[in-house]
Design a protein around this nucleic acid. Structure first.
Lengths: 238, 238
DNA sequence: GGTAGTTGGTGACTGCAATCACAAGCTGAT
DNA sequence: ATCAGCTTGTGATTGCAGTCACCAACTACC
């Protein structure tokens, strides 16, 4: 399969809506060119694993198309999804920098493409290009914040309905850039949503029914429409 | 009150048992001296707040004596403790680096001392001393791992007993350096333990009774003695 | 278009831990 | 020594959401 549009970092960056948020954007041209040399691009189908919790870190993946869920599992098979990464996100950075095993598993939930940069060559590159260090710290910091968000989701919300309301509103917030923030494309199954908010598939299913009945939201195919945002916000803080 | 022993970073580092883990250790002498110039030391009583969730970042605190709990709260007063920091830990780094509000509150649980370094002067210092950047990334990475640990605690353990077992074992693991890892000094109340493992004070109290009755552990004043480590490990994975 | 596998909807049941309530034990200040 | 204020222990009760069970709807692939 031929990629539908440019896959290298420069091209991706050129079309990236919020450049300053991403590790490898807004860099000087020579640095970008070097990056382009050391990266290798691959296409990943749905449910492909980029890396698995516990593996020794091989390097980082810069997602340029598609979505990947980052999760951790217990040996009994229970799993928690910490984040659903999208284009521009750098995956596996913590493990690669600190040379500890990947602390999470990264699995594609939508088919996509990613640039891989091996650990050795990345570290060498960092040593030679100090300007990257700041970006790196920012990305690490962003990872940390999203982990804290998950802690709040799991630890502070008292009921599953509160958690789901919180999740939907955070989705709506992230989509604020796009045309209509009340329209959200749902690419996750109920099971996966349950794994984000720390409940069961059945409960998520029941909550969606309940929210629909209460006119809080509406579902059109894979598109979720938020009908009563204030009510959802109130649920969050009840 | 006069400090009982040397408070500056160099002195603290000199007595620090695991230097390589800490941000400002093992640096060249001139860098350490500069650090000493820009820091200011203060003594904090129990329950003093170093910074509060939501405040704009003023700078970082390098804890050199005492312990501080890092937590986040919902407006209904529910709180989750993410970590209990000890000597050598750098608090407030993420917020300071990324210039976002403190994401957590830091409150002393044991009286102690900390070195404060203001944001502006820290950033300037970092710009001038590239060798620090790596330490910084490592510290950020460590923060991230501990947040992930908390996610696992809250999301993957199925029962409160499993959670408590996990917590006690992690304490025992951290104390491995000291003489006897089965003897742990408890500086937290049941309420605080409940806030770490995501349950209620009453449940923690009942669990301690249960564990004592089952001969898993023993309490002598503020010292916790683990009597049956294998049994606790088994509980964790049941 | 048929079939296998995944995903979603819903009822019935139940168990565990949250909640409430109160007493007892500790600690530190005066 | 006393007393107030935290901390801990424990019983009784309850309800929410997890679990189990099963079917329906949807998807994808021969």
């Amino acid at each position: 399969m031929r990629a539908p549009y440019g896959l290298n970092i420069i091209d991706n960056c050129a079309t990236c809506p919020v450049r300053e948020e991403h590790l490898f954007c807004n860099l000087s041209l020579p640095v970008l060119q070097k990056l382009n040399e050391i990266k290798s691009t691959a296409v990943y189908p749905k449910s492909a694993m980029l890396f698995i919790e516990g593996q020794l870190p091989r390097g980082v993946f810069v997602l340029c198309k598609g979505k990947a869920k980052l999760f951790t599992s217990s040996r009994e098979g229970k799993t928690v999804i910490l984040k659903v990464a999208g284009a521009g996100d750098v995956l596996g950075l913590n493990a690669t920098i600190s040379n500890r095993p990947y602390e999470l598993t990264a699995e594609m939930v939508e088919p996509g493409q990613a640039n891989f940069i091996g650990r050795d060559v990345l570290l060498q590159f960092l040593r030679e290009n100090g300007e990257i260090a700041v970006r790196l710290a920012e990305q690490l910091s962003r990872n940390y914040y999203s982990a804290i968000e998950e802690v709040r989701m799991l630890g502070l919300a008292s009921s599953p309905s509160e958690k789901l309301a919180k999740l939907l509103l955070s989705w709506s917030g992230n989509a604020a850039k796009s045309a209509d923030p009340s329209h959200i494309k749902m690419s996750l199954t109920h099971e996966e949503i349950a794994e984000i908010i720390g409940t069961t598939r059945e409960t998520v299913s029941r909550l969606f029914s309940e929210f629909k009945k209460k006119q809080l939201l509406q579902l059109k195919g894979a598109t979720l429409i938020i009908r009563n945002k204030p009510a959802l916000e109130k649920m969050m803080h009840s």
